[in-house]
Deep mutational scan, measured.
Amino acid sequence: MPVRRGHVAPQNTFLDTIIRKFEGQSRKFIIANARVENCAVIYCNDGFCELCGYSRAEVMQRPCTCDFLHGPRTQRRAAAQIAQALLGAEERKVEIAFYRKDGSCFLCLVDVVPVKNEDGAVIMFILNFEVVMEKDMVGSPAHDTNHRGPPTSWLAPGRAKTFRLKLPALLALTARESSVRSGGAGGAGAPGAVVVDVDLTPAAPSSESLALDEVTAMDNHVAGLGPAEERRALVGPGSPPRSAPGQLPSPRAHSLNPDASGSSCSLARTRSRESCASVRRASSADDIEAMRAGVLPPPPRHASTGAMHPLRSGLLNSTSDSDLVRYRTISKIPQITLNFVDLKGDPFLASPTSDREIIAPKIKERTHNVTEKVTQVLSLGADVLPEYKLQAPRIHRWTILHYSPFKAVWDWLILLLVIYTAVFTPYSAAFLLKETEEGPPATECGYACQPLAVVDLIVDIMFIVDILINFRTTYVNANEEVVSHPGRIAVHYFKGWFLIDMVAAIPFDLLI
């Protein structure tokens, strides 16, 4: 008679799926529990143990900040960024110097990925580790590398530091407007667009060049630039800015003055950032001319202004700041037409079709709590990747769950009947059967004279019903998954307890 339990259901295979997918890609990662103190490590794979030199037993239950890997060259700011990422709910990448158990130093890129439950609360953290440099290539500990984003994938490793954006290309926007319009339909740009040429040739750093990471940081200074100062900065030398009595002219307006920039070969870094931020506020060169004239017309309804409409929906549905990093990277690809469009465009503009998908598509409701890094690593669709929660398995109709209350009560009843059979069957065979043979035949009273025979008949009927119930009862397979398919249940029961239950259900007393 089957006594099969499996009270692990309803099970959740999400954690096993993450481990299996990460292991298949030869990654070095740990999984931490966000619900406990210090976000203790609950799993670390073999790749991480080989990377740091510690065994799994030495890593388990330690804080996922990996303070046991810190050393003299470990930056405090990087460690603080990892700790801050564990307090938030967004994906974050941090470069930090770690030390192995043998004392060797290596520069590592740590990717902190939160995993949320159905309520939107962070319950786990996945920390992925990628070695960037070994100890002989690690720089000085005073050099802070965590304020910069990861290198873009479309640049060669040897040319990542030679990417320079020439400031004269930004200063000569109005001069290039006529050349853009003359391109017409034969050019790649839309009317009114501004073409910015980027020099990728390796050259020595000069005062006129600005690194790509500095251009990325310009967006942080746009908020500090007032509207009046932006307007004066875009007017140009024809209309000098008016300053109040006793007030000095704005240095932001002076930063885009061609006369002032041409007199000296070098520009201050602050002026460069502010000038680029001011130019980015204009949607095209037409807006710059309109600002000089004193009238700013409404933005025209053409394809170039609607190019950012799908980007707005993608940004609203993005799951991490990696989408913004990807957008900034692609927006700086050289030799393309940049349409400086305000994100607050007309909502009635139709979304044009684009061959290049900048932001990841909208994630469906079932995966809105899973970050983009987890979705990318697992390579699963929205119909396959579940949320991290207890999910009731989908069972067929008329199927009994093996952990249901009805099955528990039924098993206790069958257990009592088995005990009765084990006690009274030998007793009936030894004593009652002998008395029946010696006594007179009682054929007239039937079952009324033999109450134990009636009980034995009921017990046999219950055993037959138990066999039928076992054909529709779920079970737990070797992978700790609840199986509810009727065919698989029948095959599993035939290979197991079916023969024993059938022999126990045969009414031998009635056959004798």
Rank of each mutant, 00 (worst) to 15 (best):
V370P: 07
R242W: 15
Q11G: 15
L316H: 14
G139W: 06
L248C: 15
T65Q: 07
R269L: 11
M291C: 04
N117F: 05
K21A: 07
V198H: 04
A217H: 13
L167H: 15
A268G: 11
F68T: 01
S206P: 15
G120S: 07
H368W: 07
R366S: 11
A253W: 07
T371E: 01
C276P: 11
A121N: 05
F14H: 15
P245K: 03
T353N: 14
D323L: 06
K344C: 10
I288P: 07
V115N: 01
Q81L: 09
S255G: 07
C66R: 01
I288K: 07
F29M: 01
Q247I: 09
L200M: 06
A83C: 01
E357H: 15
R312L: 07
N128M: 06
R164D: 13
L167F: 15
M218T: 04
S331M: 05
Q84E: 15
G183D: 11
D321I: 08
P2N: 06
P347C: 15
P298E: 09
L256C: 15
K161T: 14
R271T: 14
T145A: 14
L87P: 01
D323I: 03
D286N: 05
S243I: 01
A193R: 03
A360V: 15
G345A: 07
N128V: 15
N117Q: 13
R164N: 11
R176L: 06
A282F: 08
P310R: 07
W154Y: 07
I288E: 07
M308V: 12
L87F: 15
Q81F: 10
I363G: 05
D111V: 07
S153H: 06
A57K: 12
E90P: 03
E58N: 01
P150E: 12
I336A: 15
P347Q: 10
Q11N: 15
T145V: 15
T367K: 07
F106H: 01
E118W: 15
C265Q: 08
R181N: 06
S284R: 03
T216G: 14
P114T: 01
R312K: 14
K28R: 09
A193E: 10
G47F: 03
L315Q: 07
D102H: 01
R159C: 08
H147P: 03
T367F: 10
Y99F: 01
I126E: 01
E274N: 04
H7N: 03
A307R: 11
S206H: 15
A188V: 07
T17N: 15
A97G: 05
V94I: 13
V36G: 07
Q75T: 12
R273K: 13
R159Q: 09
D213T: 14
G187Y: 06
E91W: 13
S278T: 07
A160K: 06
Q376K: 10
T152G: 08
A260R: 11
L109I: 08
Q335N: 15
D199L: 01
P297S: 07
T375K: 09
D136I: 11
I336Y: 14
L212M: 05
P300Q: 03
N339L: 01
R326G: 12
H302I: 09
G103T: 10
T174C: 05
V3A: 11
L296A: 11
S351Y: 04
L380G: 04
V341M: 07
R100P: 01
D219W: 06
Y54R: 01
I336S: 15
F125L: 05
Q61N: 09
P240A: 15
P151D: 14
E58H: 05
L15Y: 07
S182L: 05
I42K: 01
G24H: 10
S264W: 14
A34I: 03
P299G: 07
R164T: 06
I330E: 08
L315Y: 14
L380V: 03
A83S: 12
R269F: 12
R73F: 03
I123M: 05
R356I: 15
S153C: 07
R35M: 11
R4C: 14
Q84F: 08
F125I: 05
R356D: 07
L173K: 15
R242Y: 15
G88I: 14
T152C: 06
D286W: 04
S284D: 09
T174M: 05
R92I: 12
S26C: 07
T319A: 14
T74N: 01
R328Y: 04
A382E: 15
V377G: 04
P310D: 15
G186L: 07
S26I: 01
F29R: 01
L51E: 07
V132K: 13
P157D: 13
A172P: 14
P10E: 13
R62N: 05
R269Q: 04
V374K: 03
P347W: 03
V384G: 04
L170V: 05
N339M: 01
D286A: 07
L165G: 15
N33D: 06
L338R: 14
L212W: 09
R100G: 01
A83P: 15
L167W: 15
H309E: 11
E357V: 09
F98T: 01
S320M: 15
A350R: 12
S206D: 05
L296Q: 10
A175H: 05
G192P: 05
V195E: 01
R301T: 11
Q247W: 14
K28T: 12
G24L: 08
T329S: 13
A121R: 07
L311K: 12
V110T: 05
M133K: 14
I336L: 10
C66P: 01
E289D: 07
R77S: 12
V110G: 01
N45A: 06
K166N: 05
K93E: 13
E23M: 03
V36Q: 05
A80Y: 06
L173I: 03
L296I: 13
L170A: 14
C52E: 01
D197V: 01
R280I: 10
D342H: 05
R252G: 14
T367L: 15
S209H: 15
S263W: 15
D119E: 10
S283Y: 05
G88E: 13
E208R: 06
C66H: 01
C276T: 11
A142L: 08
I333L: 12
N317M: 12
A290Q: 04
T201V: 05
S264Y: 08
D355V: 14
C108A: 11
P150K: 13
L51F: 05
D102N: 09
H143K: 11
R366T: 14
L109D: 11
I336D: 09
I288W: 08
L51P: 01
V41S: 01
M133I: 12
L349A: 09
A307D: 14
A142Q: 15
A172F: 01
M137A: 15
A293L: 09
